[in-house]
């Protein structure tokens, strides 16, 4: 009896830690993009290091949780779903890390006119992830509240879609001074940031089905 509850407590704290890592990872991502836009190279390099650490930490905890779920045969009915959920959440921080590394490696030439657009896009994408985390926590604690929390994820995902579209439109229709190669390059960066909110939406879709399954 004691062992059962002790194991449950350990896994609960691991899940919370994992979710915290994802949340922090996206916040660091936001900070990193802003640093890049403001040409704050030192701070940008620091955020890369932080996000790499957070990503690796999330990976380790994720694996630990999966092991615990299997070894102790926890949640036999929902184990599969929870594993997929954890993997998809891990994809979010992976996407954030990749984006930041792409900024670092490719060093896109973002004109000053697009700074605020990119900043807004990053904010919306990060907000979609930030709204997702409470929904994930609610799945474990209060399944009836999941649906109420998920609508914010969908809202911010749509917002980031719009903002990304706006950037692409501006790139190809307004900013004539840029080379085509630069435009295409920047378009990809808008897409990369947008992927973060897409990943959040994917998790939200999965979560809404999981919530229905739990309430049956």
């Amino acid at each position: 009896m004691g062992i059962l509850f002790k194991t449950a407590d350990t896994v609960i704290s691991s899940i919370n830690e994992f979710l915290d890592a994802i949340d922090q990872g996206t916040l660091v991502f936001k900070q990193g993009v802003n640093n890049y836009l403001n040409k704050e190279n030192k701070e940008f390099s620091a955020t890369i290091e932080t996000i790499l650490k957070l990503e690796s930490h999330a990976d380790n905890i994720g694996k630990q949780i999966e092991n615990d779920l299997y070894i102790h045969s926890l949640l036999p009915q929902f184990r599969g779903d929870v594993m997929v959920l954890l993997e998809k959440l891990d994809d979010i921080i992976d996407t954030a890390k990749e984006n930041i590394l792409q900024f670092d490696v490719e060093g896109p030439n973002i004109p000053i006119e697009l700074n605020s657009d990119f900043s807004k896009l990053t904010d919306a994408a990060v907000l979609s992830v930030e709204s997702l985390i409470p929904a994930v926590r609610a799945y474990f604690n209060d399944v009836s509240a999941v649906k109420d929390k998920l609508h914010r994820v969908y809202y911010y995902e749509k917002e980031s879609d719009k903002l990304a579209d706006n950037i692409k439109r501006r790139l190809f229709k307004e900013l004539d001074g840029l080379k085509l190669s630069e435009k295409i390059h920047l378009r990809y960066f808008a897409l990369h940031i947008e992927h973060l909110s897409d990943a959040a939406q994917e998790v939200a879709d999965l979560l809404s089905i999981m919530a229905i399954k739990r309430s049956l």
Partner: peptide, 12 residues
């Protein structure tokens, strides 16, 4: 509904 236990605690 009142206690809202964590899924894992409920499982245990």
């Amino acid at each position: 509904k009142r206690r809202k236990p964590h899924l894992l605690k409920l499982d245990a």
